[in-house]
């Protein structure tokens, strides 16, 4: 892999050149919360953020998107307008890049989802280092380092960023900024390794995932699911903020006074009571306990069976977003029996 280094003081210069690759979006702060937004000026970017409220998923699978326009004369015509927009996401954390790689498995295998894949193609990703806080457990989920899924990745080594070049487009960006980048020296490598092992030691949450699928099978009838069902409000916050949740609903919307309309898809959540409801009123996951169990089960057991890894990257968003304090790490540790702490 091509690796160069970029002086931190020149980051704003780099960002200005990067604009030719698309509209630059980066984490910005509002009342102590961070979110990816289009930058008006580089000074708005907060690359020292811990986590954004919504993950970058919103750029690839928007909360609401038009799939088709329906016209009486032509039938369903694919909506393509929004797909061509070029965006540069500046400052994506390793866990969120892993999450996109997981979504690639879902939308890029079997039947290909052309909407997602076109966006993935048109959106540039510049990754950046982070410092784990009390809710992060990406190391346990093996998502603390991204090897693929980015165009460039910036790793802090003091007054420089080591810059890993992941794609040809990433290389084009480096070339376009030319003299900003320089060769990596031996002492840079030593410093990188020192910081990397230091980062590993800062995680406050730890989770063994090796045999989780078996544990989930064994504990399928455990009391904990009833307890969680009692607490959970079925608000769906945990899926809305999750970088790997991808459930969606589809609806046809007709323009008033005409037969024309749009077919849209909208974020959905397996926590909502109607998720598994079918005609005749039969609901395969009627109770809140069955739905919250399903969410955990699907991520830590079901997804492993289908795609070989859990669909959780340990970003900690669902822990922060749950109004009643349901904590995925606490739940899993309790299932495993390593900790008799409560579930929050």
């Amino acid at each position: 892999m091509k690796i160069l280094k970029l002086e931190k003081g020149k980051l704003d210069l780099f960002a200005s050149v990067v604009q030719q690759f698309g509209e630059v979006h980066a984490p910005t702060e509002h009342e102590g919360k961070f979110s990816f937004k289009r930058l008006n000026s580089w000074s708005e970017a907060r690359l020292d953020y811990n986590r954004t409220v919504l993950p970058p998923r919103k750029y690839f699978l928007p909360p609401r998107e038009t799939l088709f326009k329906y016209r009486e004369a032509t039938g369903y015509v694919p909506a393509t307008e929004d797909l061509e927009k070029r965006v540069v996401l500046f400052g994506v954390h390793a866990c969120d890049i892993h999450a996109l790689n997981i979504l690639d498995e879902v939308f890029g295998k079997g039947y290909l989802d052309p909407y997602y894949l076109t966006r993935r193609k048109n959106i540039t990703i510049i990754g950046i280092d982070c410092t784990p806080d009390e809710h992060c457990f990406c190391r346990s989920m093996r998502a603390d380092f991204a090897e693929t899924g980015f165009d460039l990745f910036l790793k802090d080594i003091g007054d420089h960023y080591l810059t890993f070049v992941g794609t040809a487009r990433g290389d084009d960006m480096v070339i376009a900024t030319g003299p900003l980048f320089s060769e990596v020296t031996h002492s840079d490598i030593v410093e990188y390794k020192r910081r990397s092992s230091q980062k590993c030691d800062t995680f406050k949450l730890d989770l063994e995932i090796r045999d989780l699928p078996e544990i989930f099978e064994l504990e399928y009838q455990a009391d904990i699911w009833e307890e969680l069902g009692e607490k959970c409000l079925s608000c769906g916050n945990c899926s809305m903020v999750c970088p790997t949740c991808y459930c969606y609903d589809v609806a046809d919307e007709v323009k008033l006074g005409s037969h024309d309309g749009d077919r849209v898809r909208l974020w959905d959540s397996c926590l909502f009571a109607t998720h598994a409801l079918v005609a005749g009123g039969e609901n395969f996951r009627k109770t809140r306990s069955s739905r919250i169990k399903f969410r955990f089960y699907h991520k830590q057991r079901g997804f492993v069976a289908e795609y070989g890894r859990p669909s959780c990257v340990g970003c900690g968003r669902c822990i922060e977003a749950c109004p009643v304090g349901i904590n995925i790490v606490g739940v899993i540790n309790r299932l495993r029996g390593v900790e008799h702490a409560s579930t929050d």
């Binding site: 079997g110 991808y246 459930c247 609903d249 079901g302 997804f303």
Partner: peptide
């Protein structure tokens, strides 16, 4: 029979266990 929104393994509605 399950609730289905996509038919092609994406929308998540028709899941039973891990299928």
């Amino acid at each position: 029979e399950r609730r289905m929104r996509c038919g092609v393994g994406k929308c998540g509605h028709c899941s039973v266990g891990y299928k």
